[in-house]
């Protein structure tokens, strides 16, 4: 029994990150609404950040800010050698990734606004149908015909 608890204690964070990532993935695949897809992408990104931060954590560690720096904290300096810091490298990577994530979200939302102004809908099926009507060569039949012509040559 204690073996099971050990496994759960060691891995529950990874299970949660997989669950969140798959919720975001499902939203990106199955939802028809474009804003729902962007929300799914946000959840997906945050789940990956959670995975990196969980890898960096150390039990009984402390935040990666050097303890006992400066003269006013002189009483802490004698303990400074015993302090365990968590791994700072993934934190740095994720700090970069969060800001890139908000940039991609902003560009995606701008594209969604342009698509709505053009087609008057956020639904994927409506947009694709309108696009097929506007450009017949975009339709499935024409594309297959083009593939057949290419293969004949």
């Amino acid at each position: 029994m204690s073996g099971v608890i050990d496994i759960v204690y060691a891995e529950y964070n990874y299970w949660i990150y997989v669950t969140l990532m798959m919720i975001g993935f499902y939203a990106m695949i199955a939802k028809k609404n474009l804003i729902k897809k962007v929300i799914g992408a946000n959840i997906f990104q945050t789940a990956i950040f959670l995975f990196y931060v969980s890898l960096a954590d150390i039990t009984d560690g402390t935040a990666p800010i050097i303890v006992g720096h400066g003269a006013e904290h002189a009483e802490h300096v004698e303990h400074a050698a015993d302090v365990i810091y968590t791994n700072p490298v993934p934190h740095c990577l994720i700090l970069t990734a969060i800001v890139v994530a908000v940039s991609t979200t902003a560009v995606a939302l701008a594209l969604i606004i342009r698509i709505y102004n053009e087609y008057g809908s956020l639904d994927e099926d409506v947009i694709l149908a309108a696009r097929r009507e506007l450009q017949p060569e975009f339709s499935e039949h024409a594309r297959q015909k083009g593939v057949a012509e290419v293969s004949e040559q």
Binding site: A56, D57, T62, A63, T86, H91, I98
Partner: peptide
């Protein structure tokens, strides 16, 4: 999880 900088950024962004 002792990742203060990342938590701060996520709360703001």
């Amino acid at each position: 999880m002792h990742s203060v900088d990342v938590g701060f950024t996520e709360a703001a962004v």
